[in-house]
Design a protein around this nucleic acid. Structure first.
Lengths: 345, 345
DNA sequence: CTGAAAGCGCTAACAC
DNA sequence: GTGTTAGCGCTTTCAG
């Protein structure tokens, strides 16, 4: 005699479905997780009841039993104001779309701004997440060491700058190639003296992008001397640096490490009554909303974030199934979105 | 004789802690959830072991038992390109910060773009979330009906436009007041003929903001005839509308329903060689990144999203503890961030 | 104040 | 193929 209890609670359980379908709970479970084990008619009957009752397995119970939460943690930093670079936000949108197809969910957490590692450990010990996506690899990757140590799966958006031979799975966009595209585009538009406005030397990403600019100039036989400038990532610093470079009248192109910097250059042009595109070509980086709305339209290097998200989730999937990914290091190509800041109409 | 098993797995459990501290599992549980029940020395001893072992309660087990996941669902729509308005992204950042203090977490999910209700039900039936935050109230609120029907807790960012007497908890920002602030600011700067560039009539939020503009003009005894224009929310539509309004040379002020629209006005000014601020005052809405980086700096109405998030979480807390919030309808005041687009230097 | 027993809903292992 | 048993880690009774 089975102790069949009828639950009065709002949610049907395995037992409810089993009773209604006239099978055991295990059979319902199999219908869900190993449908090939059931006879066709039994399966159909069980599925009909599941449908009818609107049954969805209880996540907590399933997680407790299988030790898999199907949650992916992402540490979400406070909003950065004053920069047009909301790249991470766009990435998160893509990530949510990408996870939707796999049954995983993104859970956002915050941590002490002074402690890059804060928050990870707790979620892990609570078995609240199966894995992490790490985005802030530009700041070095202490998180990677931590997660490696405790054996937690993760994938990073951003390559292992500190240790190119590191073998954890990552996805990144070739920033040097992006800057090269930008510079080639300016050269093709007839510019010769093309400046680089980038970040401080401490930024690996910044130096990488800068190398793409150098490469493009070298390939075209253009001397880069005095044209590479390093500043902090804000509009005003860029504006001032641009004024300095524009002083002698020979510089007519700017490849920039960010849209914020490029917009600073546009400000300088406005103040000098120079026409973006016609007089001076300007290219930004990241195709941020700022690039899209700013006057007269900013040409910018765009990272394929949708694809990055898909690759990240794909890698995560592989890692979570304890398989070794075939290609754990995935470099994607950026593209150039051309707008009026480089058109010589 | 207690069946004390030593777990070899990575995570300590209640049993591990209990054994190590020489108490029963229940006592450890109490140390966590009802510390006032324990004798001081026992409590201290248990806490020391918890600390030492780095124990964190298993969320799945706790959720299964208490029927509370401590997760809050937020449906996250695909990124909107071409508009400077990433308000929701900024809100999510604030929300994550706000939840951090309460032990809740935000889980992001996506849904069929054609079905506003998609996704909610499933998370609920899976008991994956305790409650929802709803942000898209401008599109009407079918979600509210759904959640009300199934008895799921939620709080909205956005008031019940369709039914002002609805008694569910919400937090919103007074958009009419924001437009009024913008218009008053333009009047104070000496402008008289101040145009409104807003959204189509179908937008409740748009009409609400517009009413603030009318109110400010009326209070100053200025005739608004012919100055209120409704367009779609994009840079180009705004640019063209601005050109039309600027044609007769009398309009010198623009209050706008969004930063996107305001930036379109700035484009028109650039094309007419009019100086933002000195010749024509322009005010946007939402203080987006675009407003912050665009030349020459766009004055904009700012919504206090950090505070909105805090109030939302506060209401959610109250609702989740089955109490009736004292003040379930919370309207917050926006503020004006003044930049050069309204300075007459 | 502390301990023992029961069970949340599910799935892995094994019997039939 | 299908049913039975056990237990994931926790908290809620209820005894002591």
């Amino acid at each position: 005699m089975s102790p069949s209890r009828r639950l009065t609670g709002p949610h049907p359980t395995l037992a409810t479905v089993a009773e209604r379908a006239g099978v055991s709970r295990q059979t319902v479970s199999n219908a869900l997780n190993n449908p090939e084990l059931l006879r066709e008619d039994t399966l159909a009957r069980v599925q009909a009841v599941i449908e009818e009752l609107g049954y969805t397995p209880n996540r907590a119970a399933r997680a407790l039993r299988t030790r898999a939460s199907h949650m992916i943690g992402l540490r979400f930093e406070p909003a950065q104001e004053g920069t047009s670079n909301a790249l991470i936000d766009r990435f998160v949108h893509s990530l949510v779309e990408a996870t939707a197809r796999t049954g995983h969910h993104i859970i956002l957490f915050s941590g002490d701004p002074d402690d890059l590692l804060d928050g990870y450990d707790e979620l892990l010990r609570a078995t609240a997440v199966d894995a992490f996506v790490i985005t802030d690899t530009y700041a070095g990757t202490p998180q990677v060491d931590l997660l490696d140590r405790v054996g937690a799966p993760f994938v990073t958006f951003g390559r292992p700058w500190d240790d190119p031979s590191a073998k954890y799975p990552w996805v990144d966009v070739d920033g040097a190639r992006g800057a090269e595209l930008a510079t080639e585009h300016l050269i093709a538009a007839g510019h010769q003296r093309i400046a680089w406005l980038g970040w401080e030397k401490t930024s690996r990403i910044g130096e990488d992008r800068r190398s793409g600019w150098s490469r493009a100039l070298a390939a075209a036989g253009i001397d880069a001397a005095g044209l590479g400038v390093r500043i902090t990532d804000n509009v005003d610093a860029a504006r001032m640096a641009a004024h300095e470079l524009l002083e002698d009248g020979t510089v007519t192109g700017f490849a920039c490490a960010s849209d914020t910097i490029a917009i600073g250059v546009l400000h300088a042009l406005a103040e000098r009554n120079l026409r973006p595109g016609a007089d001076v070509g300007v290219v930004g980086f990241d195709d941020s909303l700022g690039a899209q709305v700013t006057w007269p339209g900013l040409t910018s290097v765009r990272q394929p974030l949708e694809q990055v998200a898909i690759e990240v989730i794909d890698l995560l999937h592989t890692v979570l199934s304890l398989k070794t990914p075939e290609n754990p290091a995935r470099m994607l190509e950026p593209s150039l979105v051309v707008r009026r800041s480089t058109r010589r109409d």
